[in-house]
């Protein structure tokens, strides 16, 4: 899955070609190329400041590369490293807001996103907080919500930036169970983390070092 592909294959969900990015004189990404096929879980690791988050922000479209291109072949679910949720809304209201963004509230009158929300809340063990204001939740529960919002719309490609920092052990295990389940249905997951605890969970692990990606 690594290396610069020249033509897009039918099951390729993500293709990154010759991406470069500098901040001032500091070259963060020198020439990053890789592609990701369906049904894979791939990790990107690297030291603090190696450019992992920069690469992810370029992949999802939050940041422009200086040169190179990114092609996405599926609907993306993105979970940022920093919490990106509305603190003065309840958990349920956050789901409702994001369901609206995903267009899930326009699919008939029976609000299909509510079923997904209930399932995610039950699975990641924060169902009892649905009507609580996010500002009153613990850091770990906020992180669960941050993650759950990225999968509400059943994406084909999941891009996660340090997704399990703050998870308790049970939730961490639950996360991997969920990831394996989704993988078997063809979902691809790209996980960026400065720690890769259990390499056996990944189909491939790439290391970002000195602005270049290598197999770790």
């Amino acid at each position: 899955m690594n290396g610069p592909p020249t033509t897009q294959q039918p099951d390729v969900l993500l293709e990154v070609r010759n991406v470069r990015k500098s901040f001032g004189r500091r070259r963060v990404l020198r020439d990053v190329s890789f592609h990701l096929s369906s049904g894979l879980i791939v990790g990107i690791t690297g030291e603090n400041g190696a450019g992992k988050t920069t690469l992810l922000r370029i992949i999802v479209g939050l940041l422009a590369p200086d040169s190179g291109a990114v092609t996405r072949g599926a609907r993306i679910g993105y979970c940022p490293q920093d919490l990106a949720v509305f603190e003065t809304l309840t958990v349920r209201e956050n789901f409702s807001f994001f369901a609206s963004a995903y267009g899930l509230d326009r699919q008939g009158h029976d609000k299909p996103w509510v079923e997904s929300m209930n399932e995610l809340c039950r699975r990641f063990r924060f169902a009892s907080y649905q009507n609580a204001l996010v500002s009153t939740l613990s850091g770990g529960t906020k992180q669960k919500l941050n993650f759950a919002l990225s999968v509400l719309h059943d994406p084909g490609l999941l891009i996660l930036d340090e997704p399990y920092s703050g998870f308790d052990w049970e939730t961490y295990l639950q996360f991997w169970e969920y990831a394996e389940e989704r993988k078997s249905l063809g979902l691809s997951i790209l996980i960026v983390s400065h720690f890769v605890y259990d390499r056996s969970k990944f189909d491939a692990v790439l290391e970002l070092k000195e602005g270049c990606l290598r197999c770790a």
Binding site: V60, L62, Y78, A84, F86, F97, S100, Y102, H153
Partner: peptide, 14 residues
């Protein structure tokens, strides 16, 4: 306020 969350909403389809 919530500039990053709003950008995430836009990324999600708003």
């Amino acid at each position: 306020k919530h500039a990053e969350v709003n950008r995430r909403l836009i990324l999600c389809g708003y």
